[in-house]
């Protein structure tokens, strides 16, 4: 039976997330091509901290966190170092989500591309640019759709039985 349940690569619960929580981890028994990148728990923690800042969410989907981290790390060999740099800069300067991009553009242009990458991954479910771009989430977990999940479904998923769209949507927006 289990053959039907098999999912490629990454476990349900978010292996890295769990590992990072345990911390002190230096070797991840993970058969992904991003294994090397993934071993840097500090980088992953930095990634999670920044993800929380950019999304304003503390309950980010762990499986998605793994996928995003591994994908970004795979596409950028300096990702681990750069994400740590960014995290340190944000911490040192008490940056908020409101002033983050402007301050980075002015003061830390080397890592100024990272917030957009994280936002694009979490909110739009896409990692990478151009031909390397890849969809890693297209569902109510994709944060732009999570933001409106009480009203809209991600296009191609049904909103509901026929005529459901006639009902009055929330007006307090």
């Amino acid at each position: 039976m289990s053959q039907y349940k098999e999912k490629a690569g990454i476990s349900r619960r978010g292996f890295l997330t769990a590992s990072a929580a345990l911390s002190g981890l230096t070797l991840v028994p993970f058969a992904s091509q991003a294994q090397a990148a993934a071993t840097d728990a500090k980088a992953f923690n930095a990634f999670m901290a920044l993800s929380q800042l950019i999304t304003a969410k503390s309950d980010l989907n762990p499986a998605l966190a793994d996928t995003i981290y591994l994908s970004l790390a795979q596409q950028d060999e300096d990702f681990a170092a750069r994400i740590k740099t960014l995290n340190a800069f944000v911490a040192d300067h008490n940056l908020t989500s409101a002033n983050l991009q402007a301050r980075l553009d002015a003061e830390q242009p080397d890592v100024a591309d990272l917030p957009r990458k994280l936002a694009k991954a979490w909110f739009q479910g896409i990692v990478g640019e151009g031909k390397a771009a890849k969809t890693i989430s297209y569902s109510d977990n994709t944060l732009m759709y999570a933001a409106v999940a009480d009203v809209l479904a991600p296009p191609s998923y049904a909103l509901g039985a026929y005529g459901i769209w006639s009902s009055k949507p929330p007006q307090d927006v």
């Binding site: 989500s97 933001a147 409106v148």
Partner: peptide
Amino acid sequence: GVYGEELEQQIR
């Protein structure tokens, strides 16, 4: 470059 709660609220 809009992030955080502001991003979610504006999307909505």
